[in-house]
Design a protein around this nucleic acid. Sequence first.
DNA 1: ACGGTTTCGGTAAGCGCTTTCCAGAGGGGC
DNA 2: GCCCCTCTGGAAAGCGCTTACCGAAACCGT
Lengths: 338, 338
Amino acid sequence: MAARAATLTDVAKEAGVSLATASRALNGSERVVRAELHDRTLAAAARLGYTPNAQAQSMAKGSTDLVGLLVNDIADPYFSTIAAGLATAAEEHGLLVMLCSTGGRPERELELLAALRRQRGRAIVLAGSRINDRAHLRELAAHVEPFTASGGRVAAISEPRLPVDTVVVDNRRGAQDLAVRLAELGYRRPAVLTGPERLLVSRDRRDGFLAGWRKSADGEPVCAAEEFSRDGGVRAMHRLLDEHPDVDCVFAINDLMALGAMAACRERGVRVPQDVAVAGFDDIATLRDVTPGLTTVRLPLAEMGRMALDLVLGTEQEKPRRRKVRGEVVLRESTPGR
Amino acid sequence: MAARAATLTDVAKEAGVSLATASRALNGSERVVRAELHDRTLAAAARLGYTPNAQAQSMAKGSTDLVGLLVNDIADPYFSTIAAGLATAAEEHGLLVMLCSTGGRPERELELLAALRRQRGRAIVLAGSRINDRAHLRELAAHVEPFTASGGRVAAISEPRLPVDTVVVDNRRGAQDLAVRLAELGYRRPAVLTGPERLLVSRDRRDGFLAGWRKSADGEPVCAAEEFSRDGGVRAMHRLLDEHPDVDCVFAINDLMALGAMAACRERGVRVPQDVAVAGFDDIATLRDVTPGLTTVRLPLAEMGRMALDLVLGTEQEKPRRRKVRGEVVLRESTPGR
DNA sequence: ACGGTTTCGGTAAGCGCTTTCCAGAGGGGC
DNA sequence: GCCCCTCTGGAAAGCGCTTACCGAAACCGT
């Protein structure tokens, strides 16, 4: 049971070669080992069920093949799609991903960042939304700085608040485009279902929507803030319908909230889209088949994961790079127009 | 830039204490260090931005706080929900999760298992569906055996095909229960949309359904096999409607395929549930709001992740343990009955 | 006051690898 | 026949930590 795992020393002994030779035959590459010894070593390794100890290897080499990924919630399709994209890219580079879920808790984000730092990964990707909190941002930066200073690389997928390479989602612009389209479709009494104020995504999307709307139509959108989730969408929509039963279209800050909003409408017998139109943001794949088809702003989520890995693996630049990602409005049946 | 990260030796020097003292003050716990030296060390560490090197620590200690999780596809809500459950449990134990996505490719599964083994994690959880392939199963076992032999722990979430602790999903039973309920609801011309034959989940659910059906009604269900995904569901449903336009209810082997099936119906103007009823399996959270509400078999996915971690962290038993998970039929509007 | 027991720093031996450096063997050119 | 070079194996020095083990100092009871 607790028989120690076979070590390289064991293999060397078993094969009757030196430690150095065993290492070269099994893992190293530069130096050539005579065919006979080579085979003998491999045979011995197989016999003992030897697997190199990655920890020891990376200590000796001074580098790892780990990259860390920090997300808000891995069960959220937004993040799991990003993670999948990043994982695919990581595979191509022979890297292993350490995926950590913060649950949106800032303290936990710091803890996990520290843990990732301890692991001495080659790079870390921060995929959660930044929150509007100077103190937390400072602490984050305090972790990031020494990591990058000692050769680690960090990238973020979110708002460009950290001095690191960032895949910036143009949330304002996407929401603005959507607002313009909705106004063009003839809606006149809009509402916005937002997440918590401190979440930058939420703020940016709302502000973008407001800006777009003001540009193209009269009437100020009403807002309802709730938790950033399906259930938050339900609650926000109920409140909205209580307080402003006359709205004719609703922009939910993400698809999950939009889903909740539609569910709330169903509960009350409010018809979508006849009585009220609904739109979301993200274009979550599993939600492309809801009925009525949900109008949304498509984000290339998997691609964003890949981009972040590219940034973090590319050669370091003087200044943090910014890769902008634009969302594309996708009109579906939930907003047929008036 | 590439200035080496601060090491414990640096800290010790900076604080004017010995390496041992620094180690004890910062990481070790047993031995007490006089308050003055303790503070001096912490101050020095802070000044240098020191972070312990987890690799070195675990080499020295001979144990890690890593647990590996192998899934088929992290973008699939089935797996991401399991992953989230396991991650939550891992957090409570202070463990870090290395999440790897195999993409359903058996070779990749082996590669990743080897990689995880190299990392010398404390435990590994295999969450993919087993496939019906003796050779592959043997290779898998060949990796698992030496890992467990040297003190590593392994658990699986799937079919009990591997000699390791397993969270067994009673797929047959769940599908059988569903078949019985559908028969009771008065359906008479059933069909099954399955995934690839080699996937055990797929086979078990289909066989369970067939068994349940035969028990409770006449008429043999027709089957259509396709890829295990939303798009597979679309294709399977189209084929089914071409070849057997008279089916009155369809059981798709998972919710994603069911979603595809519903989409296919919509494309053709076939009404769900009036013309054909649809049911799925898993009860994916994001799909609970599709319309019509999808009848399905609920699996406690997050809980399963947690159970797997418990198994793998619990004390080792002589025999592999099996924790059975039953699915619970949830009837919704997609199967109102005839 | 003295042996025995704590208490607490420090020294050094690993943990499992990689890699530098050295040495011996063999080969080629003159 | 000798020197120099190439080729390949092995010895050993780390990589950054933890943790026996040792020894000095402080403290106890008698």
